[in-house]
Simulated assay, not measured.
Amino acid sequence: MGATMTQTSQPIVKPAARNRRVAGMDPDKRRQILDGAHAVFTAQGFDAASMSEIAAAASVSKGTLYVYFEDKEHLFVALIEREREVQKQGVYAALTDGPDLRDALARFGEGLVRLLCGGFAVSAHRIVIGVAERMPDLGREFYERGPKQGAYRLSQFLADKVGQGLLDIDDTYLAAVQFLDLCQSTILRPRLFNALREPPAEAEIRRVVDSAVDMFLARYGCRKT
Protein backbone atom coordinates (compact mmCIF):
# COMPACT_ATOMS: atom_id res chain seq x y z
CA MET A 1 0.00 0.00 0.00
CA GLY A 2 1.19 3.57 -0.66
CA ALA A 3 3.69 2.44 -3.36
CA THR A 4 3.47 1.97 -7.14
CA MET A 5 5.36 -0.74 -9.06
CA THR A 6 7.67 -0.15 -12.06
CA GLN A 7 8.16 -2.62 -14.88
CA THR A 8 11.08 -4.10 -12.89
CA SER A 9 8.78 -4.59 -9.90
CA GLN A 10 10.75 -2.17 -7.70
CA PRO A 11 8.53 -0.23 -5.27
CA ILE A 12 8.62 3.54 -5.40
CA VAL A 13 7.77 4.89 -1.98
CA LYS A 14 5.83 8.12 -2.00
CA PRO A 15 7.62 10.54 0.35
CA ALA A 16 4.46 12.40 1.32
CA ALA A 17 2.76 9.25 2.58
CA ARG A 18 5.87 8.21 4.49
CA ASN A 19 6.12 11.62 6.14
CA ARG A 20 2.49 11.50 7.20
CA ARG A 21 3.10 8.20 8.95
CA VAL A 22 6.02 9.48 11.02
CA ALA A 23 4.69 12.98 11.67
CA GLY A 24 3.56 13.47 15.22
CA MET A 25 5.12 10.24 16.50
CA ASP A 26 8.03 11.60 18.54
CA PRO A 27 7.10 10.70 22.16
CA ASP A 28 9.45 13.31 23.64
CA LYS A 29 7.92 16.07 21.54
CA ARG A 30 4.41 14.92 22.39
CA ARG A 31 5.28 14.93 26.10
CA GLN A 32 6.77 18.41 25.71
CA ILE A 33 3.53 19.68 24.16
CA LEU A 34 1.37 18.07 26.83
CA ASP A 35 3.52 19.61 29.57
CA GLY A 36 3.04 23.04 28.03
CA ALA A 37 -0.70 22.44 27.65
CA HIS A 38 -0.92 21.37 31.28
CA ALA A 39 0.55 24.68 32.41
CA VAL A 40 -1.71 26.79 30.18
CA PHE A 41 -4.96 24.92 30.85
CA THR A 42 -4.35 24.90 34.59
CA ALA A 43 -3.61 28.62 34.68
CA GLN A 44 -6.27 29.86 32.24
CA GLY A 45 -8.94 27.22 31.81
CA PHE A 46 -10.08 25.69 28.54
CA ASP A 47 -11.84 28.62 26.89
CA ALA A 48 -9.18 31.25 27.61
CA ALA A 49 -6.30 29.04 26.51
CA SER A 50 -5.16 29.40 22.90
CA MET A 51 -3.12 27.09 20.73
CA SER A 52 -0.60 29.91 20.26
CA GLU A 53 -0.08 30.18 24.01
CA ILE A 54 0.22 26.42 24.34
CA ALA A 55 2.81 26.32 21.56
CA ALA A 56 4.80 29.06 23.30
CA ALA A 57 4.61 27.29 26.66
CA ALA A 58 5.76 24.05 25.02
CA SER A 59 8.55 25.81 23.08
CA VAL A 60 7.32 24.49 19.73
CA SER A 61 5.96 26.17 16.64
CA LYS A 62 2.22 26.39 16.13
CA GLY A 63 2.65 24.25 13.02
CA THR A 64 4.32 21.52 15.04
CA LEU A 65 1.50 21.69 17.57
CA TYR A 66 -1.07 20.97 14.86
CA VAL A 67 0.97 18.04 13.55
CA TYR A 68 0.42 16.33 16.91
CA PHE A 69 -3.09 17.54 17.75
CA GLU A 70 -5.71 18.66 15.26
CA ASP A 71 -7.40 21.09 17.66
CA LYS A 72 -7.53 22.28 21.25
CA GLU A 73 -10.27 19.81 22.18
CA HIS A 74 -8.24 16.75 21.17
CA LEU A 75 -5.18 18.16 22.93
CA PHE A 76 -7.16 18.63 26.13
CA VAL A 77 -8.58 15.11 26.04
CA ALA A 78 -5.10 13.67 25.46
CA LEU A 79 -3.77 15.64 28.42
CA ILE A 80 -6.54 14.41 30.70
CA GLU A 81 -5.95 10.84 29.60
CA ARG A 82 -2.22 11.08 30.29
CA GLU A 83 -2.71 12.49 33.76
CA ARG A 84 -5.38 9.92 34.62
CA GLU A 85 -3.29 6.99 33.40
CA VAL A 86 -0.39 8.03 35.63
CA GLN A 87 -2.55 8.43 38.72
CA LYS A 88 -5.20 5.72 38.46
CA GLN A 89 -2.81 2.75 38.31
CA GLY A 90 -2.08 3.14 42.01
CA VAL A 91 -5.80 3.38 42.73
CA TYR A 92 -6.60 0.16 40.85
CA ALA A 93 -3.69 -1.63 42.50
CA ALA A 94 -5.65 -1.55 45.75
CA LEU A 95 -8.09 -4.00 44.23
CA THR A 96 -5.42 -6.62 43.56
CA ASP A 97 -2.76 -6.24 46.25
CA GLY A 98 -4.46 -7.95 49.18
CA PRO A 99 -7.10 -10.54 50.01
CA ASP A 100 -8.99 -8.54 52.65
CA LEU A 101 -12.21 -7.12 51.18
CA ARG A 102 -12.71 -4.26 53.63
CA ASP A 103 -9.09 -3.16 53.37
CA ALA A 104 -9.17 -3.29 49.56
CA LEU A 105 -12.32 -1.17 49.38
CA ALA A 106 -10.95 1.34 51.88
CA ARG A 107 -7.62 1.75 50.07
CA PHE A 108 -9.37 2.00 46.71
CA GLY A 109 -11.78 4.63 48.02
CA GLU A 110 -9.04 6.70 49.65
CA GLY A 111 -6.92 6.61 46.52
CA LEU A 112 -9.87 7.62 44.39
CA VAL A 113 -10.70 10.61 46.58
CA ARG A 114 -7.09 11.78 46.59
CA LEU A 115 -7.03 11.56 42.79
CA LEU A 116 -10.33 13.35 42.25
CA CYS A 117 -9.59 16.13 44.73
CA GLY A 118 -6.12 16.89 43.37
CA GLY A 119 -5.57 20.20 41.64
CA PHE A 120 -5.42 18.94 38.06
CA ALA A 121 -8.42 16.63 38.37
CA VAL A 122 -10.55 19.39 39.87
CA SER A 123 -9.54 21.81 37.10
CA ALA A 124 -10.27 19.19 34.45
CA HIS A 125 -13.74 18.49 35.86
CA ARG A 126 -14.56 22.19 35.98
CA ILE A 127 -13.41 22.71 32.41
CA VAL A 128 -15.32 19.74 31.00
CA ILE A 129 -18.52 20.67 32.84
CA GLY A 130 -18.19 24.21 31.52
CA VAL A 131 -17.91 23.17 27.87
CA ALA A 132 -19.93 19.94 27.81
CA GLU A 133 -23.17 21.58 26.67
CA ARG A 134 -21.63 22.94 23.48
CA MET A 135 -19.07 20.13 23.12
CA PRO A 136 -21.03 17.00 24.08
CA ASP A 137 -18.52 14.67 22.45
CA LEU A 138 -15.78 15.97 24.72
CA GLY A 139 -18.00 15.52 27.74
CA ARG A 140 -18.95 11.99 26.75
CA GLU A 141 -15.34 11.00 26.11
CA PHE A 142 -14.26 12.41 29.48
CA TYR A 143 -17.00 10.47 31.23
CA GLU A 144 -16.47 7.18 29.42
CA ARG A 145 -12.69 7.14 29.88
CA GLY A 146 -12.88 8.27 33.50
CA PRO A 147 -15.89 7.70 35.78
CA LYS A 148 -17.48 4.99 33.66
CA GLN A 149 -14.24 3.05 33.23
CA GLY A 150 -13.52 3.30 36.95
CA ALA A 151 -16.97 2.00 37.83
CA TYR A 152 -16.55 -0.88 35.40
CA ARG A 153 -13.19 -1.87 36.89
CA LEU A 154 -14.66 -1.81 40.39
CA SER A 155 -17.70 -3.80 39.24
CA GLN A 156 -15.38 -6.55 37.99
CA PHE A 157 -13.73 -6.68 41.40
CA LEU A 158 -17.11 -6.88 43.09
CA ALA A 159 -18.25 -9.64 40.75
CA ASP A 160 -15.19 -11.69 41.76
CA LYS A 161 -16.11 -11.22 45.42
CA VAL A 162 -19.67 -12.28 44.71
CA GLY A 163 -18.27 -15.44 43.17
CA GLN A 164 -16.19 -16.02 46.32
CA GLY A 165 -19.31 -15.72 48.46
CA LEU A 166 -18.17 -12.50 50.17
CA LEU A 167 -20.79 -10.19 48.66
CA ASP A 168 -24.43 -10.55 47.66
CA ILE A 169 -25.01 -8.24 44.68
CA ASP A 170 -27.37 -8.59 41.75
CA ASP A 171 -26.09 -5.58 39.76
CA THR A 172 -22.38 -5.09 40.40
CA TYR A 173 -22.12 -2.02 38.16
CA LEU A 174 -24.86 -0.22 40.09
CA ALA A 175 -23.22 -1.23 43.37
CA ALA A 176 -19.86 0.06 42.12
CA VAL A 177 -21.32 3.46 41.24
CA GLN A 178 -23.02 3.63 44.63
CA PHE A 179 -19.73 2.95 46.40
CA LEU A 180 -17.89 5.56 44.33
CA ASP A 181 -20.52 8.16 45.16
CA LEU A 182 -20.40 7.31 48.87
CA CYS A 183 -16.63 7.81 48.97
CA GLN A 184 -16.97 11.29 47.46
CA SER A 185 -19.72 12.45 49.80
CA THR A 186 -19.11 15.88 51.43
CA ILE A 187 -15.68 16.09 49.78
CA LEU A 188 -15.66 16.32 45.97
CA ARG A 189 -18.57 18.70 45.40
CA PRO A 190 -17.20 21.41 47.71
CA ARG A 191 -13.87 21.11 45.88
CA LEU A 192 -15.51 21.47 42.47
CA PHE A 193 -17.36 24.62 43.54
CA ASN A 194 -14.21 25.98 45.23
CA ALA A 195 -15.94 26.00 48.61
CA LEU A 196 -13.03 23.82 49.73
CA ARG A 197 -9.91 25.56 48.45
CA GLU A 198 -7.41 22.84 49.33
CA PRO A 199 -7.51 19.05 49.05
CA PRO A 200 -9.12 17.44 52.11
CA ALA A 201 -6.97 16.29 55.02
CA GLU A 202 -6.02 12.63 55.15
CA ALA A 203 -7.98 12.16 58.37
CA GLU A 204 -11.13 13.47 56.69
CA ILE A 205 -10.64 11.23 53.67
CA ARG A 206 -10.29 8.20 55.92
CA ARG A 207 -13.35 9.17 57.97
CA VAL A 208 -15.59 9.54 54.92
CA VAL A 209 -14.29 6.43 53.14
CA ASP A 210 -14.52 4.27 56.27
CA SER A 211 -18.16 5.29 56.58
CA ALA A 212 -18.71 4.49 52.90
CA VAL A 213 -17.22 1.00 53.36
CA ASP A 214 -19.38 0.37 56.44
CA MET A 215 -22.55 1.37 54.59
CA PHE A 216 -21.62 -0.62 51.50
CA LEU A 217 -20.86 -3.83 53.40
CA ALA A 218 -23.96 -3.41 55.55
CA ARG A 219 -26.02 -3.50 52.36
CA TYR A 220 -24.09 -6.00 50.24
CA GLY A 221 -21.91 -8.02 52.59
CA CYS A 222 -22.78 -11.67 53.14
CA ARG A 223 -23.70 -12.22 56.78
CA LYS A 224 -22.03 -15.17 58.41
CA THR A 225 -24.39 -17.73 59.93
Rank of each mutant, 00 (worst) to 15 (best):
P190F: 10
Q178V: 15
A176K: 01
H125D: 08
D210T: 11
A212S: 07
M25S: 14
E73I: 12
Y66W: 06
A55R: 00
V77G: 10
E70P: 06
G165D: 05
A218I: 03
P99V: 14
R145I: 07
L112P: 00
E198S: 11
T4Q: 15
S50A: 01
D168L: 12
F142Q: 05
T8V: 06
K29G: 06
S50W: 01
S61T: 13
L182R: 08
P136T: 05
F41Y: 13
K14V: 12
E81N: 12
K161G: 00
L138I: 14
Y152S: 12
K224V: 12
E144I: 12
Y143N: 10
L115D: 12
T64E: 06
F142V: 04
L34E: 07
G163E: 07
K29Y: 03
A39G: 00
A37L: 02
S59R: 09
E110Y: 02
A203D: 13
A195T: 09
A39Y: 00
I80F: 10
A201V: 00
G111D: 03
R197D: 14
P27G: 07
D47E: 15
P11M: 08
G109E: 04
F142I: 06
A203Q: 09
V67I: 13
I169C: 08
E204H: 11
Q87C: 08
P15Y: 08
R21L: 15
T42D: 05
K29F: 04
Q184R: 07
T42S: 12
Q184T: 03
E81V: 09
E85V: 08
D210C: 12
F108D: 02
K29I: 13
Y143G: 06
D47A: 12
R197S: 13
T42W: 04
R126T: 04
A175T: 02
A212Y: 02
L115S: 10
V213N: 02
G90V: 02
K14Q: 14
E81R: 11
T4H: 14
V86A: 14
T225S: 10
A195N: 13
F69N: 05
V67E: 13
A151H: 06
D47V: 15
Q7S: 13
E198W: 09
Q149D: 12
M5A: 07
I187A: 03
P11N: 01
L154V: 06
M135E: 14
D181T: 14
Q10C: 07
T64Q: 08
K224Y: 08
A201W: 00
E144N: 12
A3N: 11
M51V: 10
A3L: 15
E133K: 14
L34Y: 09
K88A: 11
S211F: 11
I80Q: 08
H125L: 06
R114T: 05
V67L: 15
R20A: 13
V91S: 06
Q89V: 11
F157A: 08
R18K: 11
D171G: 06
F193E: 08
F108M: 08
D103V: 12
R18G: 09
A49R: 01
D214G: 05
G150K: 04
F142G: 02
G118F: 01
L167E: 04
L75Q: 05
G130W: 03
D71P: 02
V213T: 03
